[in-house]
């Protein structure tokens, strides 16, 4: 299946000389949730803004379902919905008028029944006549999503959609996103809540200093890069790690009551057997043990740190 979005050799240097994007190549598959992670200033928003037509690329090309975003911008843009990072809406407008305005702007004639369903799906129906300035931050965020969905796009960009949204609303929002994905909408999101990307995304891209340093299936990524930690709960607390165990790079935790060993679960040798042997030789006994997998956050932080 051809990608729904294809980014080729895309770069962006602003007039100030700042190079926001180096050479970006990226394909987004139809119907997937793609999470774009990166620290502040990495180029996430610039990449999204170029695809959506807000920023002009310095070089390279982007197609949306085969339509070039420059030469065939009408077809390309009509497929895209964008929820920007900032809560930028017409504060004097009502929810209903601003959502209807967005639908018209994207070339669709009014369809009150569709807008009603959309607002009900996003729990905004009882606020339809409220002015945006009277809504809470979370509600405004939902309105932004309603505006982005008002023209029935097949690709939805969510640029940090849950920033400043409380936990309950965030969960609701992700439920809506999952429902959208199930209805066939491709979703590209950026988020600072890496846990969310871990929960939601099918694939992860990590961008840093304008370069895509990794694009990987989420499960494979976690499988491939995931480090495991073995935590041993000791019978007797240690004040320091014996020199005979230095080769294992252990750390002490919980006031010396736990020994933590980090290992690569996919490596040819985990080193667990030799660790246990060495522990026995050092006469260090433990009463329990457990293992934990690195989170996506650990992987992300590790990747970005390595890229510095």
């Amino acid at each position: 299946m051809p990608p729904i979005i294809s980014v080729k050799d895309l770069s962006k240097t602003y007039a100030t000389g700042f190079q926001a994007l180096k050479t970006i190549n990226l394909d987004i598959d139809k119907g997937e949730i793609f999470a774009l992670l990166g620290p502040n200033g990495a180029g996430k928003t610039t990449l999204i803004s170029i695809i959506c037509g807000i920023v002009t690329a310095s070089s390279g090309s982007v197609t949306v379902d085969g339509h070039d975003i420059v030469s065939d911008y009408r077809a390309a843009r009509s497929m895209i919905g964008l929820v920007p990072q900032e809560l930028t809406a017409d504060m004097f407008e009502t929810v209903w008028t601003t959502v209807c305005f967005s639908r018209g702007l994207f070339g669709k004639w009014p369809n009150p029944a569709f807008i009603e369903k959309l607002l009900k799906d996003l729990s905004l129906w009882d606020k339809k006549d409220s002015r945006l300035m009277t809504l809470s931050g979370g509600m405004k965020r939902r309105v932004m999503i309603a505006k982005a969905l008002s023209h029935e796009p097949t690709v939805l960009f969510l640029d940090e959609p849950t920033a400043g949204v409380d936990v309950e609303l965030r969960k609701d929002m992700w439920q809506s996103v999952r429902a959208l994905r199930d209805s066939g909408v491709t979703i590209i999101l950026t988020t600072h809540y890496i846990r969310e990307a871990e929960d939601m995304a099918d694939r992860i891209g990590v961008i840093n200093k304008g370069e895509l340093i990794l694009v990987e299936d989420k499960r494979e990524l976690m499988h491939k890069l995931g480090q495991k930690q073995l935590t041993l709960q000791l019978h007797e607390a240690l004040t320091e790690i014996p020199a005979s165990l230095n080769a294992h790079h252990l750390t002490l935790a919980n006031e010396g009551n736990e020994l933590v060993y980090t290992y690569d679960s996919q490596g040819p040798r985990t080193g667990i057997t030799s660790l246990l042997t060495d522990l026995a030789h050092a006469d260090i006994r433990f009463k329990d043990l457990d293992t934990t997998q690195s989170s996506l956050e650990d992987i992300f932080v590790d990747l970005v740190r390595r890229d510095r």
């Binding site: 807000i54 967005s102 994207f106």
Partner: peptide, 17 residues
């Protein structure tokens, strides 16, 4: 006003000439 409030993004990203 849309430039001031930032809502110009919608105009620029719409399929409109």
């Amino acid at each position: 006003f849309p430039r001031f409030t930032g809502t110009i993004y919608e105009l620029l990203s719409a399929p409109i000439s």
